[in-house]
Design a protein around this nucleic acid. Structure first.
Lengths: 211, 211
DNA sequence: ATTTGCATGTCGACT
DNA sequence: AGTCGACGTGCAAAT
């Protein structure tokens, strides 16, 4: 039998039905089911990182005969277990989170500290997290002649979506009395993003992480 | 010992170091490691659906003493295993995929089939997947007076990001000789999205899935 | 091989 | 509880 009160990893033959934001069926087969202490559950197939089905934290798991049922506010997963192949209960499962280095902040700091290496002009101020109607921009430098240089930094390849985000900031900052120049700063950039920038009079700043 | 040639689920005490798109450390603790037949590997902590660390398909796994090393083009995960608590080899792991109903396509079809219920006017044509510079739009209806009605459909709550996407399409379709009207069609919508639509002269079409 | 846009995205932060 | 933006987003389809 299965003890659903403890986190477990269960390899079994089963079929899965999901109903909620969408509706889906996973045909009968051998799958790995993981139930965690936060109430989340996921059903993994033999390929891909992503689970075939899942339910987030605070879901309620229930066992009814050979049915495993996980309920959420408006979602329900029903697992029809036909054969338990292997089950392990995972005791003292760590809940530590990963510690990430090389953040966007790091790039912003580099731009801030070496502003002159990237942008020419005589600047009054350089501000981080410059507030706009659509949220703060990473960096804004204001020239003595009131030209605003707006930088959006991305920690990896810049995309068109990043450019439209930049564009929105520019629209928010543009007024009748000041000029604006937009920059996307990132280690790499997609071709379409380059086109988009050119078309809208913006520039790409190539910037790398220090090793 | 661990047989890395077969898919497995391993619960062990370990520490994980990742280097690639970012750099991260996961402190020593008990984690569940899943290695799949496609070469992917993931390290799960005791909370959340998402793995703490992972490596996609076609990664190469290597065992060196108590080190599990997964390499990719430009990424590497090193798992320092200090104690194996439980290991299961997952045979005949199904690779079936889920069968999803209630898709965006379904909404587009509904709009297409009941166009008159949503938009007034005399129309020449209604096209699905109307091609633009920025990719195909879900639906475009062209009035006899050359007004283009451009619809972007979303299967759930519409966001500002969806609106900017719509805006891009509108820009691509607008010329000196035609008028355009933009619509975001979705079951729900965020307040900010509503504001954005109003500000840019677009509309929201409320549309539900049929039961 | 690269790019694009979707996703039952997930998740954290903030209102 | 709802909204918003970031993510090592993952992923498949199109180019």
């Amino acid at each position: 039998m299965i003890d659903i009160s403890r986190p477990f990893s269960l390899f079994c033959r089963c079929e899965v039905i999901y109903d909620g934001r969408a509706y889906s069926i996973l045909e009968e087969g051998n799958y790995l089911i993981i139930s965690k202490g936060d109430g989340s559950i996921q059903i993994h197939g033999g390929t891909n990182i992503q689970p075939r089905n899942y339910q987030g934290a605070k879901s309620k798991l229930e066992l009814r005969g050979h049915l495993l049922i996980s309920r959420n506010k408006k979602e329900i997963i029903t697992i029809v277990v036909s054969k338990i192949i292997n089950i392990a209960y995972l005791r003292y499962w760590s809940e530590a989170e990963i510690n990430i280095k090389r953040t966007e902040q790091e790039l912003v700091n580099k731009l801030f500290d070496n502003w002159g290496n990237y942008i020419d002009g005589e600047f009054e101020t350089i501000q981080r997290e410059y507030p706009t109607e659509y949220g703060p921009v990473d960096l804004v430098g204001i020239e003595t002649n009131k030209t605003y240089h707006v930088i959006e930094a991305k920690r990896r390849r810049g995309t068109v979506a990043n450019c439209t985000q930049l564009k929105r900031y520019l629209e928010a900052i543009t007024t009748s009395t000041n000029l604006v120049k937009g920059y996307l700063a990132s280690p790499q950039i997609s071709d379409n993003a380059v086109k988009y920038l050119e078309k809208h009079g913006c520039k790409w700043l190539q910037i790398d992480f220090d090793i």
